[in-house]
Amino acid sequence: MAEHNSTSEGRLIRLYDHFKREWQIYVLLLPMIIWFLVFLYKPMYGLQVAFKDYSIFSGVANSPWIGLEHFNTLFGSDQFMRAIRNTVIISIYSLCVGFPMPIILALMFNEITHHAFKRTAQTIVYLPHFISTVIIGGIVITAFSPTAGIVNLFLGWLGFEPIYFLIKPEWFRPIFIGSGIWQEAGFSSIVFLAAIAGVNPSLYESAVVDGASRWQMMWKITLPSILPTIIIMLIIRIGNLLEVGFELIIVLYQPATYETADVINTFIYRQGLQGAQYDLAAAAGLFNAVVAFVLVMTANTISRRYSRTSLW
């Protein structure tokens, strides 16, 4: 017992010494900790309304507990099930099409040797990232307009009838995913370009002496070298799988396209903010968060086991 005490005492003294020595570092960390506490942990207190019959007059604490009733309602609702289905489909499509795009772009940029051309091309593909989502939505709506949109204009030249893209459910997903890629692929490629820049140049020189072509070098050196970065980005992406960029959906969708466009986040937005059903929306949000948590944990574990790369 005495030994135990002295060990824990020793640990305390060591901790105290450590803080005394390194306190500046903890001061630097403080703003981030406060930010996390205020904006991420404190709101978690409100999560309990997912299990309560919440009334804004009674407040969070005084609303009566109702167990899993909201979850029963959600899973019994066709709209919510449709939102889950749409979220998963849109997420998987964007993952399959959208995730490789920045990697391909980065590989292509890496192959461009003409500096001015490279810089211009990079600026052009980075640009949409800096435009607000609402403006992007406006551009997309204009581009696909049946009367003045460039897409229908082009179809008209080819002799086709104009297509009402934005009210046809079957067109929503391709348009949404395509505009998402247009907006973000360029900017997301920066992280892969940085990874490529970190590849030891003598690997390429050695391959050149061995007789490898540029194509072979890309496949056999560049891609395997940036694989850890790709995996990390994929884990992060999988963690955010259910976080479909709903701002753009809200701008683009309309009741006619709810069938393919309504995702969990837009459902939460409609129920929670427009319908004032905060408790039901909180339950949907909590479900979303739990699934995302499970996804990121699974992806990380699989990656750590098979590729020795992981986020933590």
């Binding site: 030891n200 003598s202 391959a207 002496v209 007789g211 072979q216 050196i221």
Partner: peptide, 26 residues
């Protein structure tokens, strides 16, 4: 010609046999 580099220039994702086989496979 074959060159031996200062920092070895070994492909980190390949094992020793595959590193040595790289030029031959190409």
């Amino acid at each position: 010609v074959a060159m031996v580099f200062q920092n070895y220039a070994l492909y980190p994702h390949l094992n020793v046999a595959d590193n040595m086989a790289f030029g031959l496979r190409i």
